[in-house]
Write a protein that binds this DNA or RNA. Structure first.
Length: 209
DNA sequence: TAGGCGATGCTCT
DNA sequence: GAGCATCGCCTAG
């Protein structure tokens, strides 16, 4: 294997998103995030990927962790917009949301899949696989590949260097919506958004309405 | 490639 | 103690 040398600075210049680039509305933010770049900088190197699949968990949504009110775990969902909400799912996998409503409202956008852009050898080491398609396909895999864990909970995704959102690196394809994956409450709401015909999208494609 | 299934351990009631 | 916004492995087509 001819692994590339990792650097601690991005190989590509990413244009950070500003608050004025993004809507403050959960479903609108979910759509807007498709095609944007998520960048992670660690001492081991930089990893980055295009966001290709998300799910919106809107205020008053029974499927949302915030539905029952603020708890120590879900506090990040109640912060100002564009903060990271990182939680452990099924005791095995970290999952990451972006807070999406004004402070105190409790909502978020779950990142479900990325298309790897940079730091692929590092992602392969973290994931223990060389299969490109499986590096960031699924919310738990995405967090493992990007080294996202609870230490990044409540991080401001527009202000910090460790993890931040950046502008798309290329034109975003058609965005489609469908039912959300793996939930038992409000399963019929069309709040999953993904880039059509992108092979890095997770879940069954038959969920499309 | 798609679908089924069991392991997993944290969170909340 | 029950539920769960998942994953990896296995099998079938």
């Amino acid at each position: 294997m001819n692994a590339k040398i990792q650097t601690s600075v991005p190989l590509q210049i990413y244009t950070r998103l500003k608050p004025s680039d993004l809507p403050i509305s959960t479903a609108e933010l979910a759509k807007a995030l498709i095609g944007c770049t998520l960048v992670r900088e660690t001492p081991e190197g930089v990893t980055a990927g295009r966001i290709v699949e998300v799910e919106a968990y809107v205020p008053g949504d029974p499927a949302s962790h915030a539905f029952r009110g603020k708890t120590p775990r879900t506090a990040a969902m109640f912060l100002s917009p564009y903060r990271a909400y990182v939680y452990l799912s099924y005791g095995t996998s970290w999952c990451m949301n972006v807070s999406s409503e004004p402070e105190g409202h409790g909502a978020g956008v779950l990142l479900r899949a990325l298309e790897p852009l940079e730091g692929i050898p590092l992602m392969q080491i973290r994931r223990g696989t060389h299969t490109l398609r499986d590096l960031c396909r699924g919310p738990g895999r995405l967090c493992q590949a990007m080294a996202i864990d609870r230490s990044l909970n409540e991080l401001d995704l527009l202000q910090q260097n460790a993890l931040y959102l950046a502008a798309p690196v290329r034109k975003t394809g058609r965005v489609r919506k469908s039912k959300r994956i793996g939930i038992s409450k409000a399963p019929d709401r069309l709040l999953r958004f993904y880039e059509a015909e992108n092979s890095f999208v997770s879940g069954p494609r038959s969920l499309s309405p």
